[in-house]
């Protein structure tokens, strides 16, 4: 089994994606051998009221009849009116499995007290939180997009609580180096491996930077990126088969109740 923690439904305003509906994205995942996906709706980054995007995702999930297990996450902006009610609707009525926060698109700071309070709220209620460091490489990012990586910003939030199960995706090696120092002991934070290259830059284990292997997981950024690029990182990693299986469907999957 393979859990892909980094997939998205919807349109991206800065370039056409080769898949935009849940059905299309799940089909790409299935073709690549992925059995479970965590997904949220991209429109939630751009709508004034991101709950509208969650409703769109709910409709897509309801209509989906394919073979991939879908774990929908709600995009929540805790600085926007009515977020708590929206969050409850998504989790209790829609059956969503977690939330995604996007401070870089919703224009509040990573250490904003409102966000810190929301992060603690998620921890208290066992709501998993997903954070995407960057959708596109900074060198090609559209001028209207968020300009820089959030590498130095994300830890400000993660350090505020040890209870909240958090998935950080699209982290670059430099970020992991920094976060390794900060989060080696924090077993609430998981990182995907989508941007770490092991083959020509050195053995897998030397790249872990103080974070135990079981705290890494598989993420592809489907449909922004080719799923096989991330699968190759697992396939070619110089680790045991058991460890590979753990990356693909390990500790995080268990914590998510899968």
């Amino acid at each position: 089994m393979i859990l892909d923690v980094s997939t998205y439904v919807g349109h991206w305003p800065f370039r056409p994606l080769h898949a935009t509906t849940l059905e299309q994205i799940a089909a790409i995942a299935e073709h690549a051998g992925v059995t479970h996906i965590i997904t949220s709706h991209l429109h939630g980054a751009f709508y004034q009221d991101c709950q509208k995007a969650n409703e769109e995702l709910y409709e897509e999930v309801k209509a989906y009849a394919g073979g991939v297990n879908v774990l929908p996450f709600a995009v929540i902006n805790p600085t926007y009116i009515g977020w708590e009610k929206d969050c409850n609707i998504c989790l209790e009525q829609f059956g969503f499995q977690g939330v995604e926060i996007m401070p870089h698109y919703h224009h509040y700071a990573w250490d904003d007290p409102t966000l810190v309070s929301f992060y603690a709220y998620c921890g208290e209620r066992n709501i998993p939180v997903r954070i995407n460091n960057s959708f596109e490489n900074t060198r090609q990012r559209n001028l209207h997009d968020y300009p820089l990586e959030c590498t130095s910003e994300i830890p400000k939030l993660l350090l505020t609580g040890k209870k909240t199960l958090t998935i950080v995706t699209q982290v670059i090696p430099a970020t992991i180096r920094n976060m390794g120092t900060l989060f080696g002991e924090h077993d609430h934070v998981y990182f995907d491996i989508s941007r770490i290259s092991f083959m020509t830059s050195g053995p897998f284990l030397s790249k872990l930077n103080g974070i135990p292997l079981q705290r890494y997981c598989f993420g592809s950024l489907n449909p922004f990126a080719y799923v096989e690029c991330a699968l190759n990182r697992v396939y070619y990693a110089e680790i045991t088969e058991h460890e590979k299986e753990g990356l693909l469907f390990g500790e995080l999957a268990a914590k998510l109740g899968l």
Binding site: A32, S197, F198, E228
Partner: peptide
């Protein structure tokens, strides 16, 4: 080509439709 990113180069070919 790969230019230091072997997994990426191979993945782009495997994944391309």
């Amino acid at each position: 080509g790969t230019d230091g990113s072997y997994e990426a180069g191979v993945g782009k070919i495997l994944g391309a439709n």
